[in-house]
Design a protein around this nucleic acid. Structure first.
Lengths: 131, 131
DNA sequence: CAGCATCCTGGAAGATACTG
DNA sequence: CAGTATCTTCCAGGATGCTG
């Protein structure tokens, strides 16, 4: 065991790599938004504050595990605000923060791009598949 | 077994859900860009055409499998162009298409958002973790 | 109502070896 | 050089049951 084995070398490389990327804002952003639930929840909250169960209903298909996890992360990053009213049973309302709104605004541009160019993407796909 | 069991009901819901989302352009877009390799490759090609090995070098950490897969998908969707020169050995150059450029332009906005607001996100994170 | 804890599986992605 | 083929690992995310 005098020399480094493959696993160790991989670990080293991985470490360098992570260290580099961790400092890259676009990478950080990527990890934040490259998650379908994040995008869907953010969009839903763009229509105004909503309660947990409302979000769960609108964002069809999300498990409560994923919904809770997503909301927690968004809260942690200061993108959504979580308001708990001490009623019985408890009432929890989520809303976008300023920061969340500014991100949603930018993501809206992407949404517009999708709506504008998706037909072209589909066409390209069919052309490619026809070969 | 006269009534539908839980699994069947879930399957039904899942089917409805998929059908609905499959028709949603923003969902389609999401699946296209919510992939770190896609974003990194697109950004790299934003600096101009590049050969396979160049991309592999700049986008550190990507395996050939993932790089090839990513490039193929981008080509299929009409976002990048693949140019093969019949030299020996073969020379393959990738470049952004018009469509790819327009997407990159929009993604650039997100990148700018990240660079502008990441500090706030980090601050929010630390505040949250301090609780 | 709005979660938390636990178990489990499919598919994404990495490692590795080979080739026109 | 620019891939393909194959094996394997890993973990995001779904299912399910319980609770303040």
């Amino acid at each position: 065991m005098a020399t480094k084995n493959a696993a160790q070398q991989r670990a080293d490389r991985k470490h360098d790599y992570d260290a580099y990327l961790a400092a890259c804002p676009s990478r950080q952003l990527l990890e934040r938004i490259s998650n379908k639930w994040v995008v869907l929840v953010l969009n839903e909250l763009g229509d105004g504050p909503a309660r947990y169960s409302e979000i769960a209903r609108v964002v069809a298909g999300v498990s409560q595990k994923m919904l809770t996890q997503t909301l927690r992360n968004l809260e942690r990053d200061g993108l959504v605000h979580r308001d708990v009213e001490a009623t019985v049973p408890v009432t929890v309302t989520y809303s976008l923060t300023e920061l969340g709104s500014s991100l949603l605004k930018v993501m809206g541009q992407l949404k517009l791009w999708a709506e504008d160019y998706m037909p072209e993407v589909f066409a390209a796909r069919e052309r490619y598949d026809a070969l």
